[in-house]
C-alpha cells in the first residue's frame, strides 16, 4: 500500500504533515537542533514575541504537578528588533514552515509587530497569542472578552494576507463564543488551547511555589479538557483548528484529529522527550496505514457519535 497522505492546509499555509511544536516550548527552533530536525515537522511556532523586550516573571517559574506542570514565564522575550536580528536568520535554515507567535499589550502592538514581519518571506504565518492583558482595557485578558477579541483580530486582519491563526485561552466559560468572534474577525484558523490557570502551594513555608503565585497548567492532565474544547469549537465554527493540550504521543494526536483538529501541536512533551514531535509524525502515518486511510484528512472530525 502506498504511504498515506499527511499534507494539510491551514488557510493558505500548506503543511507537509499536521504536526507542529507549541509556542513557548521549542524556543526559536535551534535550541532543539541536536535532537530534532525541524525539517521533518509540519511547522514550528516560536515563543511569543512582543514589540518591546519583556523581562518576564520572577522565579520560580515552573513546577511539576500530578500529570502536568505549571508555568509562569511572563512572556520573557527580547522584543521584535532582537527577534529580527538574532533569531530569524537561524529560523530561515530550519527547512520547515515558520509560524511566529505574536503577543501585545495593545491591539496596535500586534499590528506593528506583524507589519514589521511582513517584510520577511521566511515567516509563513502568524499565531496571535491573545491570552495577554490589554492595558487599554484595564488589563482585561483579550481572549476572555468576545468584543475585545473580535476587535483585535479584525484590526490585525487588515495588516496581513498571511495565514492568521488565533490562539484561544481555555479560561473562559464558553470557548465557542470566543472562537466565533475570531471567525467573524476574519482569522484563518484557531489554535486551542493555551494553558489552564492553576497554582501550587508549598505547605512547609505556606508560600506559593511559583514566584507569580498563579501559572498555566499544561501536560497530560489537561488533555481531556483540551480535547472537549476542540470538539465543541469544531461543531460551532468552520475554521480549521490546531489542537493541543497534553499531546504526549501519536495516539493522543489522533484523538485530537478525530475530534476535529486539522493539525496538532506538541508542547510540554518536548521537555519530557525532545523526539516526541517526530514520533507523533511517524505514529500518525502508521495509524493511517493500519486503519487503511489514504489521507489524514479522512480522519479530521471523524468522531462517530451515532
Amino acid at each position: 500500500m502506498s504511504k498515506p497522505n499527511l499534507k494539510v492546509a491551514i488557510g493558505s499555509l500548506k503543511l507537509q504533515n499536521p504536526v507542529m511544536v507549541a509556542s513557548g516550548t521549542f524556543g526559536y527552533g535551534r535550541e532543539y537542533a541536536d535532537y530534532v530536525d525541524p525539517a521533518r515537522l509540519g511547522a514550528i511556532v516560536t515563543k511569543t514575541i512582543t514589540k518591546n523586550r519583556r523581562e518576564g516573571n520572577r522565579p520560580p517559574r515552573i513546577c511539576e504537578t500530578t500529570g502536568g506542570m505549571l508555568n509562569a514565564i511572563g512572556l520573557q522575550n527580547e522584543g521584535l528588533e532582537d527577534f529580527i536580528q538574532e533569531k530569524l536568520p537561524a529560523c530561515r535554515d530550519a527547512g520547515t514552515k515558520l509560524i511566529v507567535s505574536v503577543g501585545g499589550e495593545t491591539s496596535n502592538e500586534y499590528g506593528e509587530v506583524i507589519e514589521a514581519l511582513n517584510a520577511y518571506p521566511e515567516v509563513a504565518a502568524y499565531e496571535l497569542n491573545i491570552s495577554c492583558p490589554n492595558i487599554e482595557y484595564k488589563d482585561k485578558i483579550i481572549s476572555q472578552d468576545e468584543e475585545l477579541t473580535h476587535k483585535v483580530v479584525r484590526d490585525v486582519r487588515q495588516k496581513t494576507d498571511r495565514t492568521l491563526i488565533v490562539k484561544l485561552s481555555p479560561n473562559v466559560s464558553d470557548i465557542t463564543r470566543i472562537a466565533r468572534a475570531v471567525q467573524d474577525g476574519g482569522a484563518d484558523a484557531v489554535s486551542l488551547v493555551n494553558t489552564f490557570l492553576g497554582m501550587a502551594v508549598d505547605v512547609e513555608t505556606r508560600r506559593p511555589v511559583l514566584g507569580n503565585i498563579t501559572g498555566g497548567l499544561s501536560g497530560p492532565a489537561i488533555k481531556p479538557m483540551a480535547l472537549r474544547m476542540v470538539w465543541q469549537v469544531y461543531n460551532k465554527i468552520s475554521l480549521p483548528i490546531v489542537g493541543m493540550g497534553g499531546i504526549m504521543n501519536a495516539r493522543d494526536a489522533v484523538e485530537f484529529l478525530i475530534a476535529g483538529a486539522t493539525a496538532v501541536a506538541v508542547g510540554t512533551a518536548n521537555f519530557v522527550d525532545p523526539r516526541t514531535p517526530l514520533e507523533v509524525v511517524e505514529g500518525i502515518a502508521s495509524y493511517l496505514s493500519q486503519h487503511h486511510y489514504k489521507d489524514v484528512k479522512e480522519l479530521i472530525g471523524s468522531l462517530n457519535v451515532s
Binding site: 513557548g24 516550548t25 524556543g27 532543539y32 518576564g56 522565579p59 517559574r61 511539576e64
Partner: peptide, 27 residues
C-alpha cells in the same frame, strides 16, 4: 539550581536574575 523544564534553553523556566536580566541556568 532551579526547577527545570526543557534543560536546553528553550522554555525560560529556570532563570536567575543577573546584571544582564534573567538568564537561563540550564544554558
Amino acid at each position: 539550581e532551579e526547577f527545570m523544564g526543557c534543560g536546553l534553553g528553550a522554555c525560560l523556566g529556570c532563570v536567575i536574575r543577573t546584571v544582564s536580566g534573567y538568564r537561563r541556568i540550564c544554558h
